[in-house]
Design a binder for these strands. Sequence first.
DNA 1: TCTACGACCTACCGACCGGTAGGTAGCATG
DNA 2: CATGCTACCTACCGGTCGGTAGGTCGTAGA
Lengths: 227, 227
Amino acid sequence: MTTSGRKPDEGERYKAILETAARLICDRGYEGTSMQEIAAACRMTKAGLYHHIQNKEQLLFAIMNYGMDLFEEQVLSRVQDIVDPVDRLRACMRHNILLVTRGWSKEVIIILHEHATLTGEARAFIDNRKKRYVDFLEEAFSQAAQQGRIRPVDPTIGAFSFLGMVLWVYKWFKPDGRLTDEQIADGMVDLLFPPIVAAAVDGQPGVSSLRVVPRAASGSGSGTEEP
Amino acid sequence: MTTSGRKPDEGERYKAILETAARLICDRGYEGTSMQEIAAACRMTKAGLYHHIQNKEQLLFAIMNYGMDLFEEQVLSRVQDIVDPVDRLRACMRHNILLVTRGWSKEVIIILHEHATLTGEARAFIDNRKKRYVDFLEEAFSQAAQQGRIRPVDPTIGAFSFLGMVLWVYKWFKPDGRLTDEQIADGMVDLLFPPIVAAAVDGQPGVSSLRVVPRAASGSGSGTEEP
DNA sequence: TCTACGACCTACCGACCGGTAGGTAGCATG
DNA sequence: CATGCTACCTACCGGTCGGTAGGTCGTAGA
């Protein structure tokens, strides 16, 4: 099973098909999008589209792999070499939030939404690529806790809390809302990984504590929507 | 527009149809579930099913309203009178996580997953019910910050971080995994609303700080899956 | 016993689904 | 100029989709 699910270097055209299909599937859902519609959006007939892909499920699989490639390129690869585990998590959260909000790659949103659509081998393959991200986060949480940089926390719970905060954003973020994506990223980073100010306890340096700089903390929000 | 989307007190039978349909739609998705299948699961023909409901979209709408009823009954109503805002948030998080993990009401999962399936008035109606929950959380975060019980945070960011952690659970939780739902609830509550141990700074009581009791903080997780 | 009604049924509608058989136009290579 | 190949096309497949017209049957009330 190759990364793209089909013979590689068929070139730009194939990538364009994936991106067009991703746009539609992201809007209408996988089951809610017909091959007819996808073909039309690619300015082809359905039979023409089937010249490039094997079937609908393999198309989704290819889109998801493409999305994982984009994620690894735009998030993982940019933060995995940061030595300090907390800084690594901070940067990772920032990049991941912006990847979701900027909406350049609908493929990533499809990975998030259609988490149970694929079955069998294809499902297992994508789940495995996702799992590598979870492992990466668990490792970072584990290190951070061990070094006393954050409060002790089960790494799995830390990782999935991180992911929930970050990835749930796709369900409610509106680009024209009250909060910009930068503000959301800053706010969430500051919430989960607050800068260290307080003194040490028990011989360790200060751990996940308060800071005194006042930030906006009033008024109930608008511009965003439903949970 | 009534709460159930159809004439009330048609009795238990109607509720049973909603629950059966919810089970199927939760498994296969809204677009992926046919009225034929739903009817069969209700041990009826399709025409028989249509005697009780108006159309597929109204069925989804009724399921979601039913789910919101269950949520308000099992979560909101049990915590909204807790005076202390942090205790209120803690209890709310606990109840909400268990509502998701126990899987008694597939209707709630459908609300989470099919967040963009409804359109028009029905969509607006459900979004409005969701928004009341967001407002409730924002208010609690606002109070907690004002009273110096948590680090200052934009209430919207607090609310959606809370929701992300809690609701994302439906995407990865497996009942037979390494962590029980109780452990996840405890862990997440402790992560976002740590008990106060540290001293005061700037004249306020201790705010969201470290504690010394060691908790498990090693080993990367198994038994759970994909982000 | 007659009537009315709710709760279903059979049988069907037109539209659309994912997918394919088989053809063709254009182009590169020999 | 023949061959082979890619990139499409038209036309069609069997099946299923959401939804409905109109009938049947059991039961409750008059």
